[in-house]
């Protein structure tokens, strides 16, 4: 199953955090920064699988004898423009399929926002959660078809673009008010 989904940008600023296990906020932050440290050091030519971050590695190394277990063993990531998309999962997931999954996630966002960029996700993080909610429930993937995901999110209400003029902060502040 999938244990966590994280999205952060090139500076390690989180844009989406979703943990399918209850975890203290401070531990979540530590995990995010550990993974960011790992992922930001990787050159582009390397593969999309990370070694386990120290927080996770300590406990799982002991149980490698068993083929399957509940411990997360795979950290998969995708780097799209300014954003990193991270999936932490157990051995029941297929590594290559997870890469496809991240791709579908990004494509769904692109379709909903039309040429999605980081700003869209910053301002509409609720929509980001909604998309993920259509794809994963409780750590189990429920949908991988792009059309159905988009349809499911749209059924929940209109998806907004980022506020206009947002690209020039300062100017826009007085003009753009309300939702």
């Amino acid at each position: 199953m999938i244990n966590a989904v994280l999205v952060f940008n090139n500076n390690g600023q989180p844009r989406l955090t979703k943990f399918y296990t209850q975890l203290d906020t401070s531990v979540q932050q530590r995990l995010i920064s550990e993974i960011f440290t790992l992922v930001s050091a990787r050159p582009a030519s390397s593969c999309n699988f990370l070694p386990l971050p120290p927080l996770l590695a300590s406990s799982s190394s002991s149980s490698t004898s068993n083929e399957h277990n509940d411990a997360p063993s795979l950290v998969t990531y995708g780097h799209y423009a300014t954003l990193y998309f991270i999936l932490i999962s157990t051995s029941t997931e297929s590594p290559l399929a997870l890469l496809d999954f991240i791709r579908v996630f990004v494509e769904a966002l692109d379709k909903l926002f039309e040429n999605v960029c980081e700003l869209d996700l910053i301002f509409n993080f609720e929509t980001l959660h909604a998309v993920l909610g259509e794809m994963i429930v409780g750590g189990v993937v429920v949908e991988t078809s792009l059309d159905k995901i988009v349809e499911g999110v749209r059924a929940q209400g209109r998806v907004m673009k980022r506020p206009v003029n947002e690209s020039r902060p300062g100017l826009a502040q007085g003009i753009w008010a309300g939702r």
Partner: peptide, 20 residues
């Protein structure tokens, strides 16, 4: 945030950079 960066469209193609 750096706006220019945040405005970069996220193409469903992965970004790659170089240097080991």
């Amino acid at each position: 945030d750096d706006d220019d960066e945040a405005l970069t469209t996220i193409h469903p193609r992965e970004a790659k950079s170089t240097q080991p």
